[in-house]
Amino acid sequence: MLTIKNLHASVEGTPILKGINLEIKPGEVHAVMGPNGSGKSTLAQVLVGHEAFEVTEGEILFDGQNLLDLEVEERALAGLFLAFQYPVEIPGVSNLQFLRTAVNTLRKHRGENELDSPSFMKMAKEKAKQVDLGPDFLKRGVNEGFSGGEKKRNEIMQMLMMEPRLGILDETDSGLDIDALKTIANGVNTLRAENRSFLVVTHYQRLLNHIVPDVVHVLAGGQIIKSGDKQLAMELEEHGYGWLGINEAEAAG
């Protein structure tokens, strides 16, 4: 589904990703772990097309398409979804209006009928409930005045609505208590399917107790230095990144 070959990317001339190779097959959940500054979030941002990052080398194939040829919105319509680490506020635009625009744009792209108001409302309420958000959240401005945890749940709710081919979670677990973590994991797990994959970017292993990955990668200094199964995450948790010879401060520099 997703093939990343020798991906190099930099921001304002500073290289961040230095040759990433990664292959995600349909139905798989891949976790990318690594210390702060290792390039985890950059990888997520480059995949969706964040314009602050310049891809200097390598290629990304998504369902056979060259992802780097596509605009941000085209990648989204192709089935790429990013649950942002820092979801932005859009004051005055209700969650409902935002989601309806997004979902109907996607349906139109897929050649499906746009959802009418009542059916959309019904669906939105169901999905909101799945992540413990009350119906009043639908009427509020997008992330406007939401707590950190509410913003993260709102991201997962959007993912449930958009049913992507590849869901990317960028440190969705950071700053969440254990209950919220479980809620989010449940949301993701209900979406797991044979033809849907996930890339879970996280600093900590604890999320992976709830979203059990097929493959775990450790990213350091802009490269994947080790890959393994879920045991790798456990070992990292136990021994710390130092165990792999990574100096956190150095990696961040």
């Binding site: 969706v48 859009i90 935002f98 744009t105």
Partner: peptide, 29 residues
């Protein structure tokens, strides 16, 4: 902001519609 634009576009909304939506939200009151 560029972040608002990225957020909307990542949800499949084209840039023109995104600007229009953000501006309309700003004017809601």
């Amino acid at each position: 902001s560029d972040e608002q634009m990225l957020f909307c576009r990542q949800r499949g909304i084209d840039p023109e519609q995104a600007v229009s939506m953000i501006v309309n939200g700003f004017c809601k009151e």
